[in-house]
Amino acid sequence: MNIPPSLERLVEQLARLPGVGQKTAQRHAFFILREADAYARALAAALVEVKEKIRFCRECFGYAEEDLCAVCRDPGRDPGLLCVVEQPGNVFVIERSGVFKGRYHVLMGAVSPLDGIGPDQLKIRELDARVSAHPVRELIIATNPSMEGEATALHLSRLLGAKVEKLTRLARGLPVGGSLEYTDEVTLHQAFSGRQNFGG
C-alpha cells in the first residue's frame, strides 16, 4: 500500500532532523497522527514561533528573543569574565551547569579551511572589538577539543593574548563519575598530560 502523500511529506521532513532516520521519522509521524489535533497545532505553532522570535544577541551572538540575550541583560553577570564558544547551543550547556558567572561570546563555528571557514567568517572581529572596548580579566576559550577547535583557540590566543589579563582554555580529561577502568586510552593520555597539583 502506498503511504498517503501528506504523511510521506511529514516523514521526509522529520527524517532531515539530526539523529533521526527513516524509521524514527515514521514513528514520530505516527505518534503525531495518533495524538489529539491540539498537539499537532501546538507543535506547528512552536516551530513557526521559534523561527520568528529567535534571533542572535547583538552583543554575544547567543540565541535571544530580544535585542540582547538574557545573560547580556543580566547586570549581575561579571563582564570581566568572557567565555568563547563555537555554537549558540553551547551557551545553554554551560548555563545548565551553573558554574560560570561571566558572559559569553559565540563564534558561530570554528576555523576549517576545508569548509571554507576562516577567521573572517567567524565572529572574531566582533570579539576583538568587545575585548578592546571593555577590560577583560579572563578570556576562557571553550571551543571544542577537535583539531578545528584547537586551531581556533590558537588563533584567538595570538590575536587577543596581549589584550586580556589572562587567557585560559577548558581542561580535558576524565569524566566525573566515570571509572578509570572504562576510560579509553586517548582520554587517559590527555588526563595525564593535563594533570594538576593536588593537596596542601
Binding site: 576555523v111 577567521p119 583539531m147 581556533t152 595570538r158
Partner: peptide
C-alpha cells in the same frame, strides 16, 4: 596568514 595556528598543531 591563516596558516600559523595549523603549523603550531
Amino acid at each position: 596568514t591563516a596558516l600559523e595556528p595549523w603549523n603550531h598543531l
